[in-house]
Design a protein around this nucleic acid. Sequence first.
DNA 1: CCGCAAGTTTGCTGAAGGACAAAGAGGTCA
DNA 2: TGACCTCTTTGTCCTTCAGCAAACTTGCGG
Lengths: 231, 231
Amino acid sequence: MSKLDESLLTGLPPFSLLERSQIREILDQALPKRYDEGAEIFREGHDAERFHLLLDGYIRVVKTTEGGEQIIALHISPGQLFGIAPALNRDTYPATAVAASESLALSWPVRLWGEFTAKYAGFATESYTTLGQRLGEMQTRITELATQAVEQRVAAALLRMVNQSGRKVEEGIEIAFPVTRRNISEMTGTTLHTVSRLLSAWEKDGIVHSTRKHIVVTAPHRLVILSGAQG
Amino acid sequence: MSKLDESLLTGLPPFSLLERSQIREILDQALPKRYDEGAEIFREGHDAERFHLLLDGYIRVVKTTEGGEQIIALHISPGQLFGIAPALNRDTYPATAVAASESLALSWPVRLWGEFTAKYAGFATESYTTLGQRLGEMQTRITELATQAVEQRVAAALLRMVNQSGRKVEEGIEIAFPVTRRNISEMTGTTLHTVSRLLSAWEKDGIVHSTRKHIVVTAPHRLVILSGAQG
DNA sequence: CCGCAAGTTTGCTGAAGGACAAAGAGGTCA
DNA sequence: TGACCTCTTTGTCCTTCAGCAAACTTGCGG
């Protein structure tokens, strides 16, 4: 494996305030790893041995219920830390991380967490800011699940993915990683059947264009309306 | 206001590792305040000027939706920190805190947060552990809302309140603060009507005994079964 | 002591969406 | 090329629960 390039980290939130030499130090201790689509990065309940930073690709963080159902807790996009159990003094991962598309991530042993937060100004701050945002997102989802109808929730979920990973194509904005109807149902607390019906209806209305595992939103503003926008 | 007693804080998680002299220091900077039932401690969106520690009583942390509905995000019981926006680098409160019963809390200006975490070993650690637990609880609620039927969710909510604040009475275990049907519906994403029907049915089955704003669980194990237990 | 507000109960109705079923459409591997 | 697996679509039925409406209870303030 060739030497890691410092430009990888420069500008990423957790490291934005650091000197080149500090970044060098951090990189030298990182273990880079590539994951195929569908590969598991860590599993719920296992010892949290490392924390991770996604460089490229997309990660789904998933919880499994007693009944065997999956719930998608979180999507991680490039530049974000994940599996940061040490930030919350947890010694086991609270959920499972799976690559949603082919991905590249760095990781460090958890014992370095304390060192990083102590040594690198801004690292702790940035990490806890991120955590605060995730907490806010979770609160938003709870509110949605408690008050909104399925159609609004699915619309909101699509918009969230578009905002997080949307890339322009000629028809509209495309979600940059593979998503199945089942995945969407696992984000919104419904069934894949209902999601399929909604997408079919929206396709007919010219709001989205979807193929297998692949969604392009052609009329985002109309989705915003359907989602019962708040901002 | 008379001088605060050190024994108030000794043994509370956030301060469990501290010396008496340190506790003295912390207390000297604290502002104690009493709140009537229903009184607002801070409001969503306002500048987060202080962080708080509940000494006695119960606090409900509430979010209001665009549609004007309320969602209960969290219950705080004595000994817990709340309104700790600074821990997540937020400069405004993400939700509103209301006293569920007559309550007593200490508070400090947010600028002391950095000082406390830096100066008192274990304060930061304990705080982030708490945060991790709350994150876990939120995840649990998302999972429940996404996968369980109303009856299971209401049963689970009752059990949560019993675990957090239950005190033994001769008939069973009583929830220690006033709760309305509406409150329960705001915790579980349903309507007060449905909650009322469920409580009536459970009353008939001898599982709970409830009066206005007041609930005693007489057969907790049966509620556990209804909730679709996982542990 | 009366009136009012807040909280609770119960009945009825209808719609949303979950459950079940079955068939089609790509995609992959031998 | 064919078998198989995953993903998707669509139809039908049926349960759950929200919505609406109205009456009842309890406690408080004037």
